[in-house]
Nucleic acid binder design. Structure first.
Length: 432
RNA sequence: GCACAGGUGGCCGAGCGGUUAAUGGCAGCAGACUGUAAAUCUGCCGCUCCUUGGAGCUACGGAGGUUCGAAUCCUCCCCUGUGCACCA
């Protein structure tokens, strides 16, 4: 059993896209339930899938996005992947851009109230967002909507009518609110309105299913509540887990610096994936690949039994995920480079090259000396000259494989190529 | 509006006139060890300039002031939380 798995190449297990008819409900359920943190309610989902199969009407599946942070990372793709599953099964996926909320400035999360975005910024962000999202979703069959379409028309009167369906204590039940309330931290009045608006989106779109992270549970449930008031069947809520970032503890987030962006270079992506701990690797297998749960379980069993080395499994994971975004060839190259650089401690081949003007890094006297700290800053390996200095003192900097002992470095000739390495990262500086 | 409690480096949180670039924790970075893992140990952890030791600048919500000297005292302002609100 294990031998077949070892050979099994990462491949798309589910290729339902071209199926003209809906698959049997059991098979649909199997795919949809993998990697879902919670479904409210499973029985209802099944029932609706059955209806859909009988009538031939695809389900309307919505997920909303704030066009504020256009840099998608792997954490976001957990949800995208699940959307794609619905799409592959022939259902209608609605990519909802929460432009209305961004116009106002959503303060959710931290003490710092976000600045409202301009229309132009929102459009630009939404465009970038789409570009990234359609690496995963099929653009041709995705319905893209903006919630200003209906929220903008609601007006003060309409808003009051909608909010009248909720009570203050209902709103304060939301975990984030109650925590902040107990900690005597600020809660702006309009923050209470966001769940309501999100719920109204579901009413306006007549959603059958809404997807969101588990942190969205409250908002997602508001949709159900509100749909009932408007005589609609409450949507099924499918929550995807919040994926831990590289540290394995905190959620993946760009601002926490533990994220892997989907537009990162194959080498970066591969390298970052290799740096996660073994525990986390299994979650990444489940949430970031299309391998079946049973297959993943089998690999895990092999590792536990000592038949497979965890590093090999991790390399395969890194290659699989990287290939999904950057193509098979790029993933293969990243794989080889990584091995060369870290397993054989050699210098990788296609390192990122950075051109530097000699004047920018010129040393104190003369023609062929450079100041190393300046170079490190220029090629992006150090955040400041002070930091670069410290790293040199810590013996963390290597030039062409040699430990750099001095801040002043002499070059043999002027158009120079230097492989500069600081810790795990390396760049080629081309000085002229 | 009034009263009280607060606002400190990426975050949390000490300090309440002078060995203070500011204790401690978290996060981060580097070195050792490894499987570039994780865990552990060690070092670093505002910026700039010259240098293997210094020099300067900027920082404790904001603006002034007192003082030889202020994150620490005073004044005003801004922000947050809590309480008060009828009978006046």
């Amino acid at each position: 059993m294990s031998s077949t798995l070892r050979c099994a190449r990462p491949q798309k297990i589910y290729t339902y896209r071209d199926m003209p008819e809906f698959l049997p409900v059991d098979e649909q359920m199997d795919l949809l339930q993998k990697g879902a943190a919670e479904i409210i309610r499973v029985a209802d989902l099944r029932e609706r899938l059955e209806d859909s199969r009988k009538t031939g009407r695809p389900l309307r599946v919505k997920a909303g996005f704030d066009p504020t942070a256009p840099d998608l990372h792997l954490g976001h793709t957990v949800l995208m992947r699940k959307l794609r599953h619905f799409q592959q099964l022939g259902h209608t996926v609605i990519f909802l851009v929460g432009d209305f909320t961004s116009l106002i400035g959503d303060p959710t999360g931290r003490n710092v109230t976000r600045k409202p975005l301009t229309r132009e910024q929102i459009d630009a962000n939404a465009e970038t967002y789409k570009q990234q999202v359609f690496k995963i979703l099929d653009e041709k069959v995705t319905e893209v909507r903006y919630n200003s379409e209906w929220l903008g028309k609601l007006g003060y009167e309409g808003t009051i009518r909608v909010t009248s369906h909720f009570t203050v204590s209902q709103m304060l039940e939301r975990d984030e609110f109650s925590k902040r309330f107990q900690a005597e931290q600020p809660i702006s009045l309009h923050e209470l309105l966001y769940p309501v608006m999100q719920g109204y989106d579901s009413v306006a779109l007549k959603c059958d299913v809404e997807l969101g992270g588990t942190d969205q549970k409250f908002n997602l449930l508001c949709g159900r509540e509100l749909q009932r008031h408007y005589g609609q069947k409450p949507q099924i809520v499918l929550m995807t887990p919040i994926l831990e970032g590289l540290d394995g503890v905190q959620k993946m987030s760009k601002s926490l610096g533990n994220a892997i962006g989907i537009n990162e270079s194959p080498a970066e992506m591969y390298g970052k994936l290799m740096s996660i701990n073994d525990e986390l690797m299994w979650k990444y297998w489940v949430f970031l690949t299309d391998l079946k749960q049973s297959e993943i379980d089998a690999i895990e069993a092999d590792v536990k039994a000592g038949k497979l080395h965890p590093m090999e499994v991790k390399k395969r994971l890194a290659r699989t995920i990287t290939a999904g975004f950057q193509g098979e060839a790029a993933a293969q190259a990243a794989d080889e480079n990584w091995a060369r650089m870290f397993q054989q401690k050699e210098t990788a081949e296609d390192l990122e090259e950075v051109a530097v003007a000699y004047a920018e890094v010129a040393g104190p006297d003369g023609t062929q000396q450079i100041r190393l700290p300046k170079l490190l800053v220029h090629i992006g390996l150090a955040a400041s000259g002070a930091e670069a200095n410290r790293k040199i003192a810590e013996k963390a900097v290597k030039l062409d494989g040699e430990l750099a002992e001095n801040v002043i470095v002499s070059l043999p000739e002027l158009p120079a190529r230097l492989v500069v390495r600081l810790g795990k990262r390396a760049r080629v500086a081309v000085i002229s």
